[in-house]
Amino acid sequence: MKRIIATASLAICMSANADLFDDAAKGIGDYVMKPMADSLNKRVQRSLAEGNGPMAKGARANLKQQELAEKEANRGVRRSVKDCMKPGNVIDDDVQECVQGYREKTW
């Protein structure tokens, strides 16, 4: 009888600890491994984009697409052109980025 109780207790403890290990592994994956893999991917893409090889054009396009995706993820409030216009009614790339919410108005 003691053996059955001990075995059942061990099984319960192991299943409870398995959840803890799963949570820890998920945390390590989300907060450590993913940023490291993303950083390595960007470094490889940049080195390929600098060259003239067959993968350079694709790497440059991929880097542009990643940059745009990061901007979209961190987008702020969209504004009207009137709110973002520079003194002298100048509209340039900075103003366009302000309108889209990618940049704060600092002028």
Score class of each variant (00 low, 15 high):
A61E: 15
L20I: 15
G101C: 04
G29D: 07
A61W: 02
R46K: 14
M14Q: 09
R103L: 06
G27T: 11
Q100L: 13
A61D: 13
M85D: 02
L40N: 10
A49T: 05
E50V: 01
A25R: 08
D19S: 12
A59T: 06
N17D: 07
R78N: 08
G27I: 01
V99I: 08
C84P: 12
L40I: 10
A56F: 03
A61Q: 11
G53L: 04
C98I: 11
N74C: 02
A73D: 05
R43F: 15
E67P: 00
N89G: 10
A61T: 10
G76E: 09
P87T: 09
R60M: 08
V32D: 10
C98M: 12
A6Q: 11
K42S: 12
E50I: 02
D38K: 11
R43W: 00
V90G: 02
D92P: 07
I4H: 08
E67T: 05
P54D: 10
L63E: 10
F21H: 10
G88R: 03
G51I: 09
E50L: 11
D83I: 05
G76K: 05
L20C: 10
A56W: 04
K82T: 07
K71E: 12
L10A: 14
W107L: 04
G27A: 14
Q100P: 00
C84M: 06
V32Q: 02
G88K: 04
S15R: 05
D19I: 05
E67A: 13
R3Q: 08
V32A: 13
L40D: 06
E104L: 11
N17H: 00
D92W: 05
V44R: 04
V44Q: 06
Q45L: 15
K71P: 08
V32C: 12
A24I: 12
S15C: 09
R75V: 14
A25P: 00
Q66V: 09
